[in-house]
Design a protein around this nucleic acid. Structure first.
Lengths: 137, 137, 137, 137
DNA sequence: GTGGTCTAGACCACG
DNA sequence: GTGGTCTAGACCACG
């Protein structure tokens, strides 16, 4: 669990933890069923308050991304987004729209965006031929 | 100026105003030099406090997106992001990475992202040759 | 934190606070990592409104000079001006040009400026080897 | 009168005019006794409001930098700062202190300031051997 | 009429 | 306890 917390960042610490765990899962560094460190361990490792670590896990559980089982600790959940396909595409579109607005104000021409996206996507699938579970979609 | 404010949203009101104005500019609904409604007008229209409207404008001015002058009103600024090209690309990459993480958790296969991006980009460049007002300058 | 506010000054109160905190940092009376008084404390001490104190801190944070975190207070940030070297020198030149124009109208001969500058610089580097608190980190 | 007004600058227009006229005088582009354009002319040339031009002249007169004589128009005044030598040095020191604070936050080492000052001073005395009135100090 | 500042007072999120 | 947001209402500088 290689998380980097920046306490001076305007983003709350618990949200930084949430974002980074979601990113680790998206890049397959963490996979469904993988055990997560306990709240206590995580707090010690990251040198954050135990309540902060707990809030991060609670948030991820509420989103269906982690699952905790009585006396068994917390694990990465098995997919299963609760929304319709239509709703899920709409959410992704909203996210991409934010990137497009950002690109405009950063004065990066729109036609440079697709190649940059392709390049970033490769970083989330570092090695196409290694053993991995197939995409749950 | 068709802005929609949701006071119950977790995103602060002033930030909602900021985001939507940035989106209007990115879609060319607002162009450099265009006059913005006055702080008072905006506040009345959106039914928010004058200080909240002012904070939105001041935030956009700090980002170099609007330009305000005492006694003269506020206009859309003429481009000019203050960062290096390297820094600007880094910021866009961070934004796209967020979309990629989101896509993963929404269980939308990565190879569906580029076509969705292309489709959204079209909406931000509705038709380069459509009739548009000439620059009033 | 020995700040002196003059409410009758043409310079806004929040800007007076900003200028004086920047001066304290430049003279090493405040160093990176040092905790700042809370917004509430500062407001009480200076007998200004909490919002005014908050605006001063937010301005300094936007300039990368302070770092604030909800629930954790505000500290002096670790350097890192966001501009290119060229831009930074240009800003200093503009500032010195203002002093030169001022000197002329104060009828102080130009060749008296360098020694005055040297003398003032000494006041900002009181004594590099004096006893100082070690870094608490 | 080559003044450049930036209407989007946060500095009020009248103050921009004041600052630039003071700079022209300090660089000897304008000398004591030189006639200034009328308020009306200035307003037309700079495309600013006549009241704005008037306020600039009034400010400069109040500082003893311009002098207007009944029916004779406005001229550059003959020196004569109203303060004691001590007070004038104190004001220059305050101005240089501002530059030092700025240099610190721009991360320009203090020992680079004197050479930069020397270089800027040369720009205000473009040609040491041309005919000129001696320094009034 | 325009934007900027300031106060007083309330409520919220974070840790 | 900390900083952030929002409202209501007042006053000021600029043009």
């Amino acid at each position: 669990m290689d998380l980097r917390i920046d306490p001076t960042d305007a983003v709350p610490i618990y949200a930084q933890v949430v974002d980074q765990i979601k990113a680790l899962i998206a890049s397959r560094a963490l996979r469904p069923g993988d055990p997560m460190p306990s709240v206590r361990e995580l707090a010690v490792n990251l040198r954050i308050n135990r309540n902060t670590a707990s809030k991060a896990y609670q948030t991820l559980e509420a989103e269906g991304i982690l699952a905790s089982r009585q006396g068994q600790g917390t694990v990465v959940a098995e997919g299963g987004a609760p929304w319709s396909h239509e709703e899920r595409v709409r959410r992704l579109e909203r996210s991409l729209d934010r990137s497009i607005v950002e690109a405009y104000h950063l004065e990066i021409p729109f036609d440079e965006m697709p190649p940059i996206l392709e390049e970033r996507l490769k970083r989330f699938t570092p090695d196409d031929n290694r053993d991995k579970k197939e995409d749950p979609a």
